[in-house]
């Protein structure tokens, strides 16, 4: 009977269970029906098994999204957990699809599953990567626009982890503002 250390036996549990979604427009379906739930996981091992298995964001067809949200939260404004919140928005230029997009997206996923925002992690709902011809976008969605401290802390950690230069600012927009404005031209409630 050789004793195997528990480290080898037990998968490493995550604080939260997360669900990966894939969005692809299909004209005979409603927008909501085009959001397909791929898989949920709650261990480090299962995250990598899923992540290593799927296409990187940079190779998705233009118009597609990946989203990863806490289980029970749909990747849409209307969801009960999202409707009072907003998102930190990172806009990438066309060249950055090849150089930054996959790195940024992976770092955002690791920040979320690792609870890297400490107590502010409770404000995080999930993140979305939009692959678009006019420039890809990554959004980190939080639950309540009134939680200034948490939102700003999340923005700072995000900027630091993605090595976004100090002089480049990223903005936080309330979903309520984004809904009425077309696209991401909504005003920024916060910037870092």
């Amino acid at each position: 009977q050789t004793d195997v250390s528990p480290e080898m036996l037990i998968k490493h549990p995550l604080q939260n269970t997360w669900t990966l979604w894939f969005f692809k427009i299909e004209n005979n379906r409603t927008w909501e029906d085009c959001q397909m739930e791929i898989a949920s996981f709650n261990t480090v091992e299962d995250f990598w098994a899923l992540y290593n298995h799927i296409e990187p964001a940079s190779r998705l067809k233009v118009g597609c999204d990946y989203s990863m949200f806490k289980q029970g939260i749909k990747p849409m404004w209307e969801d009960e957990h999202n409707c009072r919140g907003g998102r930190w928005l990172i806009n990438l230029n066309k060249q950055q699809r090849a150089t930054e997009l996959d790195n940024f997206w992976m770092e955002v996923l690791l920040l979320m599953i690792g609870e890297a925002f400490a107590e502010h992690s409770d404000e995080v709902c999930g993140s979305v990567v939009n692959v678009r011809s006019k420039g890809d976008k990554i959004g980190v969605w939080t639950a309540d626009v009134k939680k200034n401290d948490s939102i700003l802390r999340i923005g700072h950690v995000l900027k630091e982890r993605l090595n976004i230069p100090r002089l480049v600012t990223i903005g936080f927009q309330a979903h309520k503002d984004t809904m009425v404005k077309s696209g991401s031209t909504a005003k920024n409630r916060f910037t870092v």
Partner: peptide, 18 residues
Amino acid sequence: GTRIIYERTFLMQMRNSP
């Protein structure tokens, strides 16, 4: 309560473990 936090380096080490 307690929170399960994983550093980036640990998560990256786990990427290719069996």
